[in-house]
């Protein structure tokens, strides 16, 4: 890393993967701070990765992230689809995670009953 130019290059190369702005790229993040992990986020992350792999979905990144904020509803999975508001899934389990991958990511249908608004 020598210059601001080098920094820009990394920035541009990564940005598309982190927040896809167009196309059919999807980003899935799992809250993996202490609170999420304590609530069982590790197997949820593994299930997301596994299900995406099994279904052979391309253009989907599954990654961990820090505390999303709503500790009460952990484990939390969020799905980012370009041009749409992100979708927040709460109180996730391995089975629910597989369902979200199948219905929302593969099928492009939000699993409304697993989202934050349905948890109340």
């Amino acid at each position: 890393m020598k210059s601001i130019e080098d920094l820009k290059k990394i920035r541009e190369a990564t940005l598309e993967a982190v927040c896809p702005r167009e196309g059919n790229a999807v980003r899935v993040v799992v809250g993996m701070a202490t609170c999420g992990i304590a609530a069982g986020a590790r197997p949820v992350l593994a299930a997301c990765e596994d299900e995406v792999g099994k279904r052979g979905l391309s253009n989907v990144t599954v990654t961990q992230t820090g505390c999303i904020g709503v500790c009460r509803l952990e484990p939390i999975v969020e799905v980012y689809v370009p041009g749409e508001e992100k979708v927040t899934y709460v109180k996730m389990t391995e089975e629910k995670a597989r369902r979200v991958v199948g219905e929302h990511i593969a099928g492009r249908r939000i699993v409304t009953e697993l989202t934050i608004g349905a948890a109340e």
């Binding site: 979708v87 939000i110 989202t115």
Partner: peptide, 12 residues
């Protein structure tokens, strides 16, 4: 806002 079947808040 993504398409949903009802008015459930789907995003944090």
């Amino acid at each position: 806002k993504p398409h949903t079947h009802d008015e459930t808040v789907t995003s944090l």
